[in-house]
Nucleic acid binder design. Sequence first.
DNA 1: ATGCAGCGGTGCAATTTTGCAGTTGTGTAA
DNA 2: TTACACAACTGCAAAATTGCACCGCTGCAT
Lengths: 207, 207
Amino acid sequence: MSQLLSLRDRKRTETWAALHNAAARLTLENGPDRVTTEAISAQANVSARTFFNYFSTKEDAILGLQDPSIDDTWLEAFDVDANLLDQVSRLLVHVVHSTEGGADGDSLRMEVVQRFPQLRQRRFGYFLKVEQLVRDVVTEGITASAKWADVAQHHRAEDISRMIVLIAGAPMRYAMQESAHAPTLDNQFAALSTANALLREVLPEIQ
Amino acid sequence: MSQLLSLRDRKRTETWAALHNAAARLTLENGPDRVTTEAISAQANVSARTFFNYFSTKEDAILGLQDPSIDDTWLEAFDVDANLLDQVSRLLVHVVHSTEGGADGDSLRMEVVQRFPQLRQRRFGYFLKVEQLVRDVVTEGITASAKWADVAQHHRAEDISRMIVLIAGAPMRYAMQESAHAPTLDNQFAALSTANALLREVLPEIQ
DNA sequence: ATGCAGCGGTGCAATTTTGCAGTTGTGTAA
DNA sequence: TTACACAACTGCAAAATTGCACCGCTGCAT
């Protein structure tokens, strides 16, 4: 009942959260430039070296960004041959959610992003990684799909999936730009929802 | 100023204390036989295996017994050629203090020993280890000493030091027996002091 | 009596944490 | 400009923690 995670995994999660919390809290108090990785590590009660076992940059720690990944469940459910726009949309949302947004209720990320715009760039960099990840999935699917064989004769699978992810990802980019001005969770969802609707309306009109 | 111990050493001390506290607390609540090493580990938030990295038996954990050891400082100050009785006495007290008694103020050992006499045996076993340790030091000193060369011609150095440690350790054994009935720290010190005086009075009379 | 489950305890390999030395880039004082 | 401190970050080896399989013993139900 309470044994979903091994002790090892539980502690790893705790340490991650401790570092992210310390980083965000200290940043809110002093600003990102006046916080050292050493101070963050001390707050989280781990060594300075361990800090970099969890985050590759200080900003990642402040924002609580993990390397994006896709659950096997989602990978298996993914099917290039049907509803690609929907599927890629959901996949993007899922990845962002499970890695960046995962345990967001208790995160100070929103406030940090709001108050220190310099960090926003990092968030978009993170989104690039998400897109890359999803692109790889789509590329692989297309390469193996009979349905896409025709198109794949005139364009490389990489380029096809790049375009698809760009289109499917448009609502998220739209939402991220939007929410930069009022970055609460609700705002993000609202913006995303709006952007999705907008995309569906626009698409038929431009072809 | 606050950096006497490395992070590693600080954490090791904390884990040791967490395990000992958990063991003593659970024992006081349920009795030593109704406490499992697993429960203790869970309380201390470490794995069951780690428990045995710190204590070789459950009883050691309950009593907070470390493997006795001698600081280098004391080793260097030790000199077989002068005041052996005094020196061995102090050495014994020091070892017991720095390992068993070390951080005793916050320990529940006394109460545990008081309420569960079954554990007392373990304490004496621990004292045997202390004696062994001190014996080794004395043996080494005697072997290298010119002053002891004469006696060492008729007896093995091991036997000589055994006898010396037995004599010098008498007051501590005396005190441990005494304090079994009213085992508070003050009592232990008082009993030890009395026993020391007694020894000094008896010695001249019997030779 | 005969299994059989529970607990103490050990060996070992995989994972994590730590300390330390070093590289790079950046600001700042002489 | 040069020099120097300081902070981000990496590589690596030693130490600590964990998970797991396993042994031996003991009590207890069948």
